[in-house]
Amino acid sequence: MKLKNLAGIGLLSATLLTTSAAQAEGTLRLAQQFGIAYLLLDVARDQKLIEKHGRAEGVDIHVEWKQISGAAAMNEALLAGALDVVTAGTPPMLGLWDRTHGRQNIKGIAALGSIPSYLLTNNPAIQSLDDFTEKDRIAVPSAIVGFQPRTLQIAAAERYGNEQFKRFDPITISLPHPDATAALLTGASEITAHFSSAPFQYQALENPKVRKLLSSYDVLGGPGTMNVLYTTEKFHNQNPKTYRAFYKALEEAEGFVKANPDEAVAIYIRQQNSRLDPAFLKKVVLDPEVEFTITPQRTFVYARKMHELGILKQQPNDWKDYFFPAVHARSGS
């Protein structure tokens, strides 16, 4: 696929909202990141599902949408009160759950899907994790704290021992997925690897010089949640109608994507101004490894290992400890 096709994915730099007081019932300030992993939110936005379910709750909900790259920026905005709901990988949500225990008490709302994340390289000398050197650079959306670097830390711990879980931290750098994909494909920068996500990883793999070294599913032992939505206890408790409407919108978006993959792809293209081939995107949506579900899957693998490595001080008993009750009825993990 030609590089010009990356232009439609969203090579935009988003600025954080200025800090403001918590919003009253009927306002939802929400941010998502880049890629088809956020398809449920694209559907909810396009079909105005949050507003629809808000009316059923007796409240007119005004939704403010933002697009931000990286878990660190998301977490900063949530803690500052600049956003009500943010999206990031399971590990950064767990980190914030741990940090805010007894204070803001941040927890997950729902998952956004079980989608693999691939560690890719364009360096022929790299055949496994053992071959990375100090000259290599691994691009991720948010270094250290994000989904990809935490997954890489767990992979390093399993391969080299817990004491070496930070083995790859010095060569990991922050770069949005669209930019990292372009860098990997051109080979004109210091970046020799990219811990990617859909659809970017599938685009990159169309280039014969790019290959997969590792999947997040390898680390988790099977399909697992990539990204989650999370918020503060204050927002959850003070905005029950808005929260319920949002959760019901996510449920409807899940059913919509599963029943209408072609229309879901059209929505993604429309919402993200994407120039990608619809057939290519439909292949991603229907990939057997991909499931757009709000049920958390294998999130506790991260919780257990992050506590073992000393990243989390609090030790959860199960996945329900760090998700708000609405999603507890599902068969999560």
Rank of each mutant, 00 (worst) to 15 (best):
N227I: 02
F235L: 12
F235K: 01
A249D: 01
K241E: 13
H236L: 12
F246Q: 00
G222N: 10
E252H: 09
T231S: 15
R244Q: 14
K234C: 03
Y243C: 06
P240Y: 08
T242K: 07
D218A: 01
L250F: 03
L229E: 15
P223G: 12
E251I: 09
K234S: 14
Y230Q: 10
T231R: 02
V219E: 07
K248Y: 04
N237S: 15
L250Y: 03
V228L: 08
T232M: 05
T232F: 08
A245P: 05
T225H: 08
P240V: 11
P223V: 03
L250C: 12
E254Q: 12
A245D: 03
E254R: 00
Y243R: 01
L220Q: 08
E251A: 00
E254K: 02
S215G: 04
Y230T: 06
L250T: 06
G222A: 11
G221R: 06
V219D: 00
T242W: 08
T242P: 11
T225A: 04
P240L: 11
R244C: 08
Y230E: 12
S216Y: 05
D218T: 05
L214M: 12
R244M: 07
E252W: 04
A249L: 07
S216R: 02
E252Q: 12
A253R: 02
N239R: 14
L220M: 14
K212Y: 07
F246T: 05
L213F: 10
L213P: 05
E252D: 14
L250M: 15
S215L: 07
D218Y: 00
M226I: 09
E233T: 00
P240H: 06
L220G: 05
E251W: 09
L229M: 13
P240M: 11
G224T: 13
T242I: 03
N237D: 13
Y243W: 11
E254W: 06
G255M: 03
D218G: 04
L214K: 08
E254D: 04
K248L: 12
A245S: 06
K241M: 06
K248W: 02
N239D: 13
T225I: 10
S216Q: 06
K234W: 14
